[in-house]
Nucleic acid binder design. Structure first.
Length: 211
DNA sequence: ATTTTCAAT
């Protein structure tokens, strides 16, 4: 009956396949972004909208989201009128991959012009973050520096997504075997990535000294 | 031990 709501929700299999935080996520040529948008009115926040997107036509899902964000958040961008009061929003998104270097840059540029928008990013897996000097790592630090909270998804986040974005029809979320281990491992990795560079240098120095 | 990554064919 309610086909609109059905189309807003993600099929179970699709969610599991794309959000599984396994070490070797083979063949996933799509990235999903589940979002919750809240309006901030004084100290209160009101849930305003939610849904999901995936990358299309060579456009990364984060940039696709930026394309829609004005329509999703009325009054966020404003029309540049004198003394115009822009509305404040908080967006939380859950992405199957962390953003690539280019998306991080574009997001940072976008957000630095919008102090009335807060963004929290949860990620299932880290995208191209293996090399110490990868541009993706740099991009994540850039986002952190402009105030974006980036967190690796843990059980409670998958659980929340399952309840919120998945057509789960009463079926409860069943964690895959390695969920917790993988989440802890990726979380440590992200923590190391987001540490200020000085600390990283210090670590390298210790390594050189064999300590 | 090694494996993959918002395709391209």
């Amino acid at each position: 009956m309610n086909t609109k709501l059905d189309s807003v929700l993600l099929p179970r299999k699709k969610f599991i396949y794309h959000y599984k935080n396994m070490r070797w996520a083979k063949g996933r040529h799509e990235t999903y972004l589940c979002f919750v948008i809240k309006r901030r009115v004084g100290p209160d926040t009101l849930t305003f909208d939610f849904g999901h997107l995936r990358n299309r036509n060579g456009c990364h899902v984060e940039l696709l989201f930026l394309r829609y964000v004005g329509a999703l958040c009325p009054g966020l961008l404003g029309y540049g009128g004198p003394g115009e009061k822009r509305l404040s929003y908080s967006i939380t998104w859950f992405c199957s991959w962390s953003p690539c270097a280019n998306c991080s840059t574009r997001l940072s540029q976008f957000l630095s012009r919008l102090p009335n928008l807060r963004l929290r990013i949860f990620v299932s897996r880290l995208y191209f973050c293996d090399m110490e000097d990868s541009r993706e790592r740099e991009g994540l630090r850039m986002l952190k520096n402009i105030g974006v909270q980036i967190t690796v998804m843990s059980y409670k986040d998958f659980f929340y997504c399952w309840r919120t974005f998945v057509a789960c029809k009463q079926s409860s979320f069943k964690a895959w075997g390695e969920l917790h281990q993988n989440s802890v491992r990726l979380s440590r990795k992200l923590k190391r990535i987001l540490q200020p560079l000085e600390t990283e240098d210090l670590r390298d120095a210790f390594k050189l000294l064999g300590l």
